[in-house]
Amino acid sequence: MSADGVSARIVCVLLCEDDEQLGDRVADGLRTAGFTVDLTRTLTDAAQQCGTRPYDCLVVDRGLPDGDGLELVRRQRESGDHTPALLITARDSPADRSEGYAGGVDDFLAKPFSLSELAGRVRALCAPRRSPPSPPLTVGDLVVDRLRRRVRRAGVLLTMTTREFSALELLAARAGTLVSAAEIAVVCGDAAVDQVIAKLDRKLGPPRILHASAAGYLLHA
């Protein structure tokens, strides 16, 4: 096993690059470095591919024929998927980087780049966290997977925005205890906590496990 723990397992990468020659070269380079790679050419195909299997890392070009590759990362983050994402782009100004980080990107690599550096960055993004993994939170038939940031109820995967997941994670961690609106506002970064809770309640579905009162909110099976 390697020191970072990555080479001991198969790392699956979704690569989205519309330049045929560059895309093939990058895909071959990553495969040579030991990664499994699915190569797509458009934003639409990449989004569809994300729905078919889990990936360990997204490597996405910004200038795609049908849109900005950053939009793929934004959509993944809004759905509660926090798969590490790296943008390969010629747009590398401070403003572009700020926009990317705001959209949920983890790392950037400016064109032109070396394949060895790309492989190293992907490996670093996929390395296990040094802190112990957080076990899933279970409240009745609700499972909040804090490591993968996914939510299931009765085995069904629920789509959550980042704010909704953060609020639910807090409520699940303190299940059976009232949590104030002020506390939820801190973690979800939204003053309209009642709206976040209302959307959560609808997504969780029946039977109701999220209860509201003047004193705060309670998650209880």
Rank of each mutant, 00 (worst) to 15 (best):
A173I: 04
L171G: 01
G120P: 10
E183D: 15
E117I: 05
R148V: 04
I184S: 00
L168K: 03
V144F: 02
L158M: 11
E169L: 07
V179Y: 00
R163I: 01
S131I: 08
V122M: 07
R174Y: 09
R146D: 11
A124D: 14
G176N: 12
M160K: 04
A173P: 03
A124G: 14
A110W: 01
V186Y: 04
R146H: 10
R121V: 03
T138V: 15
D141W: 01
V151Q: 07
G189R: 09
A181M: 05
R150H: 12
R163N: 12
R146K: 13
R153N: 08
V187A: 09
V144G: 05
A182V: 12
P132V: 08
L168D: 01
T161P: 03
T161V: 04
L168Y: 06
V144C: 10
L178Y: 10
R149L: 11
E117K: 03
L125Q: 00
V179K: 00
A110Y: 00
D141V: 09
F113M: 13
V186M: 08
G120M: 09
P128Y: 08
A154Q: 15
E169K: 11
A191W: 06
K111W: 02
S180W: 02
S166A: 15
L171I: 06
R146I: 04
V139A: 01
G176D: 11
D145S: 10
L178P: 11
L125I: 02
L158N: 09
R174I: 02
A181S: 14
F108E: 04
S166H: 11
A175V: 07
F108H: 04
V151W: 02
A191F: 07
V156G: 02
V151M: 10
A192Y: 11
S116H: 07
A192F: 10
A110L: 03
S116C: 05
R150W: 01
V144W: 00
R152L: 09
S134L: 14
V139S: 01
L158G: 10
F108T: 02
E164A: 13
L170D: 13
A185Q: 15
D141N: 15
D190E: 15
R152H: 13
G155Y: 13
R152P: 01
L168N: 01
P133C: 08
L137P: 00
